Amino acid sequence: MEIAENAALVVVDVQQGFENLGFWGPRNNPGADGNIAALIDVWQSSGRPVVFVRHDSVQAGSPLRPGQAGNGFKAYVEERRGKRTGGELLVRKSVNSAFYGTPDLDAWLKAAGISQVVLAGIQTNMCVETTARMGGNLGYDVVVAFDATYTFGLEGPFGWRLGTEEVARAAAVSLHGGGFARVVNTAEVVAAAE
């Protein structure tokens, strides 16, 4: 795998509100936070740009609403913000895709001549997957560091319920098998970026 010298790491919604397991339920992949931190560190040390995405929920009762403690980034992300060694952007959004946020992520990437994005964050099957699909549709070379994401169980139509691992795998299969993104592990990305 090749990681471009100017590839952008897009860190999606790594916010304190996702620690509220009473609201979300159990999560998968307890190692995700360590992998996200490792990716940020590699990007910053190599001078590549990092995009931090924050979900400003408009849903009543959401722990991700502005003004709530849960809207803030997790401590390990907040500690890494502001280094600007390779460029940094904060995107605020209220929908699933980081490409529908403020400022305009697509315009920022294009202005910087960036054609490859690496995604990590929360939730695998929601904002990470939606951002990956849209990035693929916009023509970006999208890489998803699967073990640097996590999610929660989900109930769908007909009373169907999928557990955390099933939801995560379904997202990975859809993205990779559908040609929207290459789904890989953090170690592969780190080795290619160092």
Rank of each mutant, 00 (worst) to 15 (best):
D106C: 11
L138S: 00
S115H: 13
G156V: 11
E88W: 11
S94T: 12
A120N: 07
V95H: 10
F99G: 01
A98H: 08
G121A: 01
G139F: 02
A107N: 14
D104V: 14
T131R: 05
D141P: 02
F152C: 09
G101S: 09
T124V: 05
F158T: 10
S115Q: 15
V91C: 14
L119M: 12
F146M: 07
A112V: 03
G87Y: 13
S94P: 00
K93V: 02
K93C: 06
R133W: 05
V91H: 12
N96H: 14
L154P: 00
G136K: 06
V91Q: 14
N125S: 15
G86Y: 15
D141I: 02
A145N: 03
E129T: 06
I114A: 07
S94V: 07
L89Q: 11
Y100T: 09
L138N: 02
A112Q: 15
F152M: 10
G121T: 01
I122Q: 09
M126S: 11
A111V: 07
G139H: 01
V118N: 11
G156H: 14
G156R: 08
D104L: 09
N96V: 07
V142R: 02
N125Q: 15
V117D: 11
Q123I: 06
F152G: 03
G121M: 04
T151I: 03
M134C: 03
A111N: 14
Y140S: 03
L119S: 09
A107C: 09
L119Y: 04
S97Q: 00
G156L: 15
F99S: 05
F146E: 06
I122T: 03
L89D: 08
I122V: 11
T149R: 02
P103R: 15
R133N: 05
N137Q: 15
Y100G: 08
V91A: 13
Q123T: 12
A107Q: 13
F152K: 04
G136C: 10
I114Y: 04
M126V: 12
F158D: 12
A98F: 03
L138T: 03
A145I: 06
T131F: 09
V142C: 00
